[in-house]
Amino acid sequence: MTHIATIKPDDFSFKTIILVEDNISETSTFFAGTVLMYFMYKIYKNESEFIESILFD
């Protein structure tokens, strides 16, 4: 298993830090996948909270 990046979201400031390993190029698929996965997670989290509020409120 290879460590590609660390993603540190800050819920208070709404800023996110993405620390990518030095050997990963900005033009690589790993870099694009890392950034894409963060935004996919944010969309999933927002949608799941919305569905949960509909079902359980």
Rank of each mutant, 00 (worst) to 15 (best):
S48E: 13
K15P: 00
E47W: 02
I18A: 12
E49L: 14
L36S: 12
N46V: 08
T27S: 13
I4G: 00
L55Q: 10
G33F: 03
S25M: 07
E52I: 00
Y44H: 12
K42H: 03
D10E: 08
H3E: 11
S53K: 15
T34Y: 03
N46M: 11
H3F: 09
L55V: 06
Y41E: 12
S53L: 05
L19Y: 05
T29N: 10
E49G: 01
T16L: 09
L36T: 13
Y41T: 09
M1S: 13
G33V: 01
Y44F: 11
S25Y: 04
D10F: 10
T6M: 05
L36C: 07
A5D: 03
A32T: 07
Y44D: 12
M37N: 12
F14K: 10
L36E: 12
F50G: 00
F12I: 13
T29Y: 06
I51N: 00
F12M: 07
K42Q: 15
F50T: 04
S28I: 05
E52H: 01
I51Y: 07
D11F: 10
L55N: 08
M1K: 07
I54F: 10
I4E: 01
T16N: 04
G33Y: 06
S13E: 12
S25T: 03
I43N: 07
D10H: 09
D57A: 09
K45M: 04
P9F: 11
H3W: 10
I17Q: 12
I43H: 05
I7A: 04
G33N: 15
M1Y: 05
I7T: 08
T27R: 10
T16I: 15
F31G: 00
F39S: 03
I17V: 13
M1Q: 03
F39V: 01
V35L: 15
E49Y: 04
M40S: 11
V35E: 03
N23H: 15
T29M: 08
S48C: 08
E47A: 15
K8D: 08
T2L: 07
E49K: 14
F39K: 10
F39Y: 15
F56W: 07
Y38A: 05
F56L: 14
S53V: 00
Y41M: 06
